[in-house]
Simulated scan of single mutants.
Amino acid sequence: MLTTPVPYFAFRHFPAGIDQQVELALLRALRGQQYILGQEVEAFEGEFANYLQAGAAIGVGNGYDALVVALKILGIGPGDEVIVPANTFIATVNAVVAVGAIPVLAEPDPYTCNLTAAVAARHITTRTKAIIPVHLYGQACEMDGFMQLAAQCQLTIVEDFAQAQGARYRGRPVGSFGRVSATSFYPTKNLGALGDGGAVVTSDPALAAYARMYCNYGQRQKYHNQIVGINSRLDTLQAAVLRIKLQHLDELNSERQRLAQVYLSALPGIGDIKLPVTSPDCTHVYHIFNIRTAQRDRLQLYLSEQGIQTAIHYPVPVHLQEAYTWLKYERGSLPVTEELAETSLSLPLYPGMTEAEQEAVITAIHTYFERHG
């Protein structure tokens, strides 16, 4: 076992000076004494929208709320169908159910693990109202196909870019393609806060205004409520932190990409490992570095014995979760998704990961396959 274990993820002081900048931002917000909404939230929303080349960003309590609000302001509700990738974090599907709509699960591409427009098209019915492309693991989906499909079939695209802040498709940031998009600022995300947070993004002024009102109790003016709304607002202290993190997002993503290239150079041809594949015109910001092997469970156990932590995204696909038996998918009905659940392993990768830590991961994987074929 390693003298110093390798964590799956760690918060490191990268780039240098960022921790002090965050501390000063928190102190500034604390001294401002405006703890709900206010200047910090407004400033971050504007800066984030500018970064995404979008009209507006509306801060909310978390990424799940962002998805629910995105669907709600589009008027999606009971009886409507929403096509979602079968290989995604369950929050995407839960959000569809939360507004009363029916999730329709579609298989991902077996190489990129992202949903494609060609596959989504097979699931369109007269009740389909929207498609949610999820930019999984940090790789941008191929958005041209989705935009063309939406125009042809009069559907709405809602991007879930919680894992891919800063990724681009043909030079354009993800989160700017959909009529409405949703993201999360969970601490481990590429753009992470110090707690929960999320945002709804849109370039439609009417939808932006509706989202702001809906998330603040349905009011434009305090105590004057136009609609029945909810309370889901980005915390002021988190907004202050995110303003700093956003300034460094491209640098943080570049470091993730550099670390990913080390793995991509060191692991080809090792056992039966399948490495991440990036589509043409897409960038990958490696929120997750996902490999696949039929020996996943044994490899994970071996790495754990060596002091190397890993993760699985995701061990039980949505359609096989107890919560979703009512959708009536059977085992074997989504074979690509099920194969991903059985073979995927996420390796440690985070800004500030040391050369020694990464070399330990690579050496351990080589050693395992030398011994087990």
Results as ranks from 00 to 15, higher is better:
residue 283 T to P: 03
residue 217 Y to W: 07
residue 324 Y to I: 02
residue 66 A to K: 01
residue 136 L to D: 11
residue 310 T to S: 07
residue 258 R to K: 11
residue 354 T to A: 02
residue 362 I to A: 00
residue 367 T to G: 03
residue 191 L to Q: 03
residue 54 A to E: 15
residue 191 L to E: 07
residue 320 L to R: 12
residue 216 N to Y: 14
residue 65 D to V: 05
residue 121 A to Y: 04
residue 18 I to C: 02
residue 255 E to V: 04
residue 183 T to H: 04
residue 142 E to W: 07
residue 170 R to H: 13
residue 254 S to T: 04
residue 204 D to N: 12
residue 252 L to W: 13
residue 107 E to M: 02
residue 109 D to T: 07
residue 95 A to M: 05
residue 368 Y to P: 14
residue 14 F to S: 08
residue 62 N to L: 01
residue 241 V to K: 01
residue 323 A to R: 12
residue 17 G to L: 07
residue 102 I to D: 13
residue 239 A to R: 12
residue 47 E to L: 12
residue 98 A to Y: 09
residue 292 R to L: 01
residue 6 V to G: 02
residue 103 P to N: 03
residue 237 L to G: 05
residue 201 V to Y: 08
residue 163 Q to G: 10
residue 53 Q to I: 05
residue 286 Y to Q: 01
residue 231 N to I: 09
residue 145 G to S: 06
residue 185 F to C: 03
residue 32 G to Q: 14
residue 154 Q to T: 12
residue 69 V to N: 10
residue 247 Q to N: 10
residue 76 I to E: 08
residue 172 R to K: 15
residue 76 I to P: 05
residue 316 V to M: 14
residue 297 D to E: 13
residue 354 T to E: 13
residue 191 L to M: 00
residue 81 E to C: 06
residue 276 P to Q: 02
residue 325 T to K: 12
residue 102 I to P: 09
residue 191 L to H: 02
residue 237 L to K: 08
residue 271 G to F: 09
residue 252 L to A: 03
residue 346 S to N: 15
residue 195 G to R: 06
residue 225 N to E: 11
residue 77 G to F: 04
residue 351 P to H: 04
residue 164 A to G: 10
residue 35 Y to D: 13
residue 1 M to E: 09
residue 265 S to M: 11
residue 33 Q to L: 09
residue 177 F to Q: 01
residue 79 G to N: 06
residue 227 I to H: 05
residue 364 A to E: 14
residue 41 V to P: 15
residue 175 G to H: 00
residue 363 T to V: 11
residue 215 C to G: 06
residue 356 A to P: 06
residue 86 A to M: 06
residue 339 E to F: 00
residue 279 S to V: 00
residue 210 Y to L: 15
residue 71 L to P: 04
residue 238 Q to S: 14
residue 6 V to E: 07
residue 311 A to G: 08
residue 203 S to R: 02
residue 12 R to F: 11
residue 183 T to G: 03
residue 14 F to A: 09
residue 194 L to V: 05
residue 192 G to W: 03
residue 35 Y to L: 14
residue 201 V to E: 11
residue 25 A to C: 11
residue 187 P to F: 00
residue 235 D to N: 09
residue 120 A to V: 05
residue 352 G to F: 03
residue 156 T to C: 04
residue 65 D to F: 14
residue 333 S to C: 01
residue 230 I to Q: 09
residue 324 Y to R: 06
residue 48 F to I: 00
residue 327 L to D: 11
residue 241 V to P: 10
residue 228 V to A: 06
residue 257 Q to R: 14
residue 225 N to I: 02
residue 131 I to V: 14
residue 309 Q to F: 13
residue 226 Q to I: 15
residue 103 P to M: 00
residue 290 N to H: 07
residue 368 Y to N: 08
residue 138 G to Y: 14
residue 292 R to G: 05
residue 342 E to Y: 08
residue 49 A to I: 08
